[in-house]
């Protein structure tokens, strides 16, 4: 069995509706895989299945060669971190305390130096170090999101062992962030992938997906419509069919795929 995260033949039915229909997806170590699709395509549901939050009606998920369910909760947490779409925080912890929660699975395994190294590194990478002593409930939405990103980074900061790839699942990590931090967060995800982690991110911004993902999975109506490099998946025909938006696709001077969408202004013509 191979390292990384694999899901085979995943089907989820909820409220009499088939939300996912025999989906196959694999996230290999060293790669960033972006899941894209219009609203209601099943992106978040797929991520919930991959994280183990949701048990699919059929199919199974394997993580680093073993079925996801056969790893213990702690073993799972040592290899894999999950950033939810809307992170919660019930109490008024300080920013640094929240990031330190990410080191929980390493208790008794990592030294205090390794822990504080991971926390400091994760806070530096997300530019949350200057917020360290702030009460989290006073942070802006974007600052809060970055704090939780720092928490999941701290959780999988350094490789556990050679044969166990780290896995990072991100559900719309850029949704509440400004332009700079959108790029900062995804480039950090790329950096972690380059160190051998498998990264899966649900993204709404197709240009960001094209810029940072090795593989793009286009999901529509609970089925995989296309899977492959951004250049193959993002065609004007597919964008028009799945998202109902006209656009041009071109390669810019650096070779990146760029989508320019047409505004809905036909009435003005």
């Amino acid at each position: 069995m191979s390292a990384g995260l694999q899901a085979r033949n995943i089907s989820v039915i909820a409220g009499g509706r088939r939300i996912l229909n025999s989906v196959d997806i694999a996230a290999a170590p060293g790669k960033v895989t972006a899941i894209v699709g219009p609203n209601g395509a099943g992106k978040s549901t797929l991520l919930k299945v991959l994280s183990g939050d949701l048990k699919p009606q059929s199919g199974r998920v394997t993580m680093n060669g073993k079925p996801l369910v056969s790893w213990s909760a702690q073993e799972r947490a040592l290899q894999r971190a999950v950033l939810p779409q809307t992170p919660e925080l019930a109490s008024s912890f300080r920013t640094r305390d929240v990031v330190e929660l990410g080191r929980h699975p390493h208790r008794g395994r990592a030294t205090p130096e390794q822990d504080s190294h991971a926390v400091a590194g994760a806070m530096h990478a997300t530019e949350t170090a200057l917020l360290a002593t702030r009460d989290c409930n006073t942070l802006s939405g974007g600052e809060m999101h970055r704090t939780h990103y720092a928490r999941v980074l701290a959780q999988i900061w350094s490789p556990l062992s050679a044969d166990r790839a780290r896995i990072l699942l991100l559900d719309e990590p850029t949704a509440s962030l400004d332009l700079f931090h959108q790029h900062a967060i995804l480039s950090k995800a790329r950096e972690i992938a380059a160190q051998g982690a498998a990264v899966i991110a649900v993204l709404h911004d197709l240009n960001l997906a094209a810029a940072y993902a090795d593989d793009v999975v286009a999901l529509a109506g609970g089925r995989i419509d296309a899977i492959g490099p951004a250049a193959d998946v993002f065609t004007a025909e597919r964008i028009a069919r799945l998202w109902r938006v006209q656009c041009t696709v071109r390669r810019d001077e650096r070779g990146l795929i760029q989508l320019s969408t047409f505004p809905f202004m036909s009435g003005l013509r």
């Binding site: 994280s51 939050d53 947490a77 919660e88 019930a90 929980h104």
Partner: peptide, 15 residues
């Protein structure tokens, strides 16, 4: 402390 993040996030941290 982990439960403050919600039950699902707490579970993802190994609780």
């Amino acid at each position: 402390d982990l439960l403050a993040l919600g039950e699902s996030a707490a579970a993802h941290l190994g609780l």
